Computed example of a mutant assay.
Amino acid sequence: MTSDRNRTAPAPGRPALSATRRAATRREVAMVAAHLFAENGYTATTVDDIAAAAGMGLRTFYRYFAGKEDVVAPLLAIGTQAWSDELASCPPELPLREALGHSYRTATAAALADEGIAESLLRPLLRAATELPALRATWLRVQHDCETRLIPIIAARTGRAPDDLDVALAAAMANTAVRLANELWATGNHSGSPADAVDACLARLAAHILL
C-alpha cells in the first residue's frame, strides 16, 4: 500500500491538473460568450444563451463564473498575463521602456494566435469592456491584477525593492498606458494594431516622465 506521504505531489510552481482544466474550460466558455456578444450584443445575450452554446447547464456555468459580466475575464486576462510573463523573460540589459513595448508586442501576438482570437472579435470585446459599466468593472479588475504582477518584475529589472514607490509608479503608468492604448484602438481612435497603439502611448509616456 502506498502512503499519502509517498504519493507524487505536483511540481512547485505548476498548477494542479484540476486547476489547469478549470482554466481551460473558463477560456472555452469565454470564447463562446465573446462570439455571442459580437453577434447579438452584450445586453441581448443571456446566461442561458451562453450556457446552451457552451453545452453546459446553468448550475455548471455558475460553478465557473459569478455572472455574465465575469465570463469574459479569462479572455481579457490572456494578453495581460502573457505580457507580464514575457516581460519577466526579457534580457535584463534591455532598457525598461524597450522591454515593455517589445514584450507586449511579442506576447500578445502569440497569445491571440494560440487562442484563435481575431481582431474582428477582439475589437468589439474591448469596446464593450470600455463602454458597458458591468464589463468595465471586470476590465479594470483584470488591469489591476496585471499591475500587481508587473511590480515585482519591474523591481527585479531595475534592482529596486518591490515596495519602492518609483517601482509602483512605473508599473501603474506602464499598465495605464497599455490600457488606454487598447481602449483607443477598440473605439477606432488609433490606426494600426493594438501593439502599435501601445508603442505610441509608451513613447509619449517616456518622453514626458521616466520610462
Rank of each mutant, 00 (worst) to 15 (best):
M1R: 12
M1V: 13
T2P: 15
T2Y: 12
R7C: 11
T8L: 09
T8C: 02
P10F: 05
A11R: 08
A11D: 09
A11G: 00
R14H: 10
A16W: 05
A19L: 03
A19V: 12
R21I: 12
A23P: 07
A23F: 09
T25H: 08
T25G: 04
R26G: 01
A30W: 04
A30L: 02
M31R: 13
V32Y: 13
A33M: 07
F37R: 02
A38R: 11
E39N: 07
N40R: 14
N40E: 08
N40I: 03
N40V: 01
Y42L: 00
Y42N: 01
A44G: 05
V47R: 01
D49P: 02
D49L: 04
A53V: 02
A54E: 12
G55M: 06
G57F: 05
R59Q: 12
R59M: 00
T60N: 10
Y62F: 15
Y62G: 08
Y62T: 09
A66R: 15
A66D: 15
G67N: 13
K68L: 03
E69W: 02
V71R: 03
V71L: 00
V72M: 07
P74Q: 04
P74L: 08
L75G: 03
A77E: 05
Q81P: 02
Q81W: 03
Q81C: 09
W83D: 05
S84M: 04
S84W: 01
D85Q: 06
S89N: 06
C90A: 13
P95V: 07
L96F: 15
R97H: 15
R97D: 10
R97Y: 13
R97V: 15
A99D: 06
L100I: 06
L100R: 08
G101L: 05
G101W: 04
G101D: 06
S103F: 08
Y104T: 00
R105H: 14
R105P: 04
T106L: 14
T106Y: 03
A109T: 15
A110V: 00
A111H: 11
L112N: 11
L112W: 14
E115M: 04
G116Q: 12
I117K: 08
A118G: 12
A118S: 15
L122R: 05
L122G: 05
L122N: 07
R123M: 02
P124A: 07
P124K: 01
L125K: 06
L126Q: 10
L126G: 01
L126E: 02
R127G: 10
R127H: 04
A128W: 00
A129K: 00
A129G: 14
T130V: 10
E131L: 14
A134E: 15
L135T: 12
T138F: 10
W139M: 01
W139V: 00
W139I: 01
L140H: 14
L140D: 15
R141S: 06
V142Q: 05
V142H: 09
Q143C: 08
E147T: 13
L150Q: 14
I151Y: 09
P152R: 07
A156S: 12
G159L: 12
G159K: 13
A161R: 14
P162M: 03
D164C: 11
A168M: 11
V178W: 03
R179D: 03
E183G: 03
E183H: 01
W185M: 09
A186N: 06
T187R: 13
G188E: 04
H190L: 08
S193M: 05
P194S: 06
A195S: 15
D196M: 11
D199Y: 08
A200H: 14
L205T: 09
L205Y: 09
L205W: 02
H208E: 11
L210F: 08
L211G: 05
